[in-house]
Amino acid sequence: MRVLRQSMRGRVGAHDYPLEPEAAPAAFRGQVQLDPNRCRGDAACARVCPSGAITVEETSTGWIWQLDDSRCVFCGLCADACANRAVSLSNAFELAVRQPDDMVTRAEFIRNEETD
């Protein structure tokens, strides 16, 4: 509605996007981000993910959190499921890459026995 009112008021022109950077709207669901300080490795995000984009793998010393952008459908279920609020959806949308491997984000955690 806001967009409609704006376009009725002003001249309607093309988006300036490639010439000017253009931020996504605030409610946009963009790339999934992990706050590594909050992640406890309980794999709630991996369980709810409908496309299997997130995997959490237990290792002998900790866990590996892995996100595959090439499978993520940006539904936001992982952010809802995370009790520690470690996962959030950012506004990043310029995700095009040349190498398919670049779409994978991998974070390796080492469990700290004293505090965990």
Binding site: Y17, F93, L95, V97, P100
Partner: peptide
Amino acid sequence: SIPGCPPRPQA
């Protein structure tokens, strides 16, 4: 590869 479901026109 352009990930997104669907990707924005800007993307």
